[in-house]
Design a protein around this nucleic acid. Sequence first.
RNA 1: GCCGCGGUGGCGGAACUGGUAGACGCGCUGGACUUAAAAUCCAGUUGUAGCGAUACAGUGCGGGUUCGAUUCCCGCCCGCGGCACCA
Length: 807
Amino acid sequence: MYNHQAIEKKWRERWVKEKLYQTGTDPKKPKYYILDMFPYPSGAGLHVGHPKGYIATDILARLRLMQGYNVLHPMGFDAFGLPAENYALANKVHPRTATEHNVATYKKQLEILGFSYDWEREVNTTDPEYYKWTQWIFLEMFKKGLAYESNEPINWCPSCRTGLANEDLENGHCERCGSEVIQKPLRQWVLKITDYAERLLNDLEKLEGWEESIKEMQRNWIGKSEGAEIDFKIIGTDKTIRVYTTRVDTIFGCTYVVLAPENDLVLELKEKITNWNEVEKYQVAVANKTNLQRTDLNKDKTGVELQGLKAINPFNRAEVKIFVADYVLNSYGTGAVMAVPAHDERDFAFAQKYKLEIKPVVFQADGELKTGEASCEDGVLKDSEEFSGLSSEEAREKMTKWLAKKKLGASKINYKLKDWVFSRQRYWGEPIPLIHCAQCGVVAVPEKDLPVRLPEVESYEPTGTGESPLAAITDWVNVKCPKCGGGAKRETNTMPQWAGSSWYYLRYINPKNTKVLVDKKLEKYWSPVDFYVGGAEHATRHLIYARFWHKFLYDIGVVNYDEPFTKLKHVGLIMGEDGRKMSKRWGNVINPDEMVEKFGADAMRVYEMFMGPFEQATSWSTNGLIGARKFLEKVTVAFEMEKVKEDKKIVSMLHKTIKKVGEDIENFRLNTAVSAMMILLNEITDYLNTNQAWPLSKKEQGALLQIIAPFAPHLAEELWEKLGNKESIFKSTWPVYDKKLIKDETINLVVQINGKLRATLNVTADITEAEALTLAQENEIVKKWLDGQEIIKKIFVPGKLLNIVFK
RNA sequence: GCCGCGGUGGCGGAACUGGUAGACGCGCUGGACUUAAAAUCCAGUUGUAGCGAUACAGUGCGGGUUCGAUUCCCGCCCGCGGCACCA
């Protein structure tokens, strides 16, 4: 049993003393920027799932270090946010105090796992010298017109008493606290991310190093759709209903139009609506529904006809009824649709319920038409006047042109992506650096006055009226207008947690320099991030926001690349031993500190990599961890042997393993890398036991330690030193495998008969087909199978197999 | 419903661009050591039949392509993740 506690402590101290992991700056060397998503330092501390990603990046970082790269492998903390504030509320301590405490705990926990972070570059989003630049970026956006105030109804969490972006919702519930979100009109700052929608979508194509699943989620989230807006005149008024559709081709089947109940047009038509009472009652009923009721109860469609009004289908002059119904969303498209029940499921359900006409106009090539349901596929148009006979695709193009010519509509692209609600009515966030002046309007805080620091407050309690607690601090709020010098008030909203994490990867490049956001020269060298690793839960928020900010910074000339992360992998969850998500509720939470103390950081590292494919979720098994420890134990025992008696076969195996481990780390296939090392160790141990000597020379023993080192850095250092090396193993050069040695002299040639394995022959690797056939035919089993058969075909795969086919 | 990913022993998982299915680890069984247990070491471990060599079946299900399919194609079933009245 090796003493992991003593060894690990010894080497951690030595690494710090020697500044081993200080970021390399030799300009002649290539660079590698490898980054983990930085954690939010919660009060609960790290759980075993956290380190999985960190271990993997650490292994790759250490490989790159040994391959002679300048490696940038930093860590920091995303420390603004609600939990610290709520904790502060409950315990009457400043959120900063709670945050500092948690950061210290996290650092300690990260330290004992032996990561090669350059802590001199640590960032913390709550540091005023950091958030100065978060504020600066916001101001640049403000100056470019990308930040605007909006009084539109926003998602409001009554429990957190704060506004939320669409991305922060989960089935109409607050993602953070789970309470039901309501719509509340409130003055908010909003960022025009939709201006970047097209680029955010298109540039996904360039990101070859990203997993398809995450790119797909982003595509979904951006939700581009191409269609047309069409005007329906309302008879007897000067008003028109503008609808949005992606299926102009079905317009001859339009039998009514629908407005969202909140559509302003409804109120404008009040005088002409003969059943206004009924309509108004419906509007109120819908307004009282929560988001959840509106979206989740998608079974029964409801609505009310606007009696006394008809609209005109611009294509065939048909008069159609007008409805309000809450299956139409005011926030998407124009808040109005043309209903084609024959070719849209929702319209079909509504038409059935209210006994409205269903008129099919698009047919499949075979003339078939489904009955009892809407047929939504493209087809060939009928009963569509001059457009009859066209395919849906042709029709869409021609009809859109027709609309444009007649000035009755135009083609239009819509996105599901909404502008980003960027303000929070909270204390523990970056103050939005704006000043409201009665004379000058909204004025940016001058750059020289940044950062706008968070003031000390008595109470963190949100006011509940929609104002941030900052609003109560009058001597902070009241300022002079930077423009006119008159009395003015500070903006009291703060930024969402996503703000600080939208650019932190740039800060690591020059964390000590507070004069600029990012040093251009250093940025040119280090950007973009070569490899980025983190949880899939950030696929549609953090990763879209960061891409958005990065593109903006690119546009204003701050950065050289228009995508921040070249390669991205997401880390699979570690589940409890019972296969369920780790949670206090199930009592299946594993504490990493305890595991490290008992079995060592090296064992923990090896085990978490060995568990399964990196991206996949797998269940924890403490027995598995013990298995990893046993492997390290074998390594230790082997290095107690001094005598050497080289063995060709095992030397060859070592070289194969060097090749495999190197390639597997590159491809993040860390489970098979560990397995390959275990196989090699098993061979070595067998040899040691029978021969009482090492099958490898001292130098080869060193190479073995070098490939183990990224996985189990402490133990590798210890044994490396024992081999007589004076310098750290991470200052050594990654071993190069000998191509000649990985070639096998003999192979097991598989002999199949009619595709079934019947024998394996141990033969020289370069055996020819003729030789193989002769040998095979001498084999007793093969002989038996071939007896009396007429061979019609032979397939020979050199170095692999011979397949003999008869009859 | 739509999109993405996946389904292999008792369990986690391996198998390169179609070429020995089950590597490696866990667990289990038997044995050695021990007064005993733990630890360690050795042997076995997909199922069925057989003392055995061996044979047959076998990678969610049903088809297909191929000398040969976990891998490719078609049609299903199930699980996970995301989105969801987005017109």
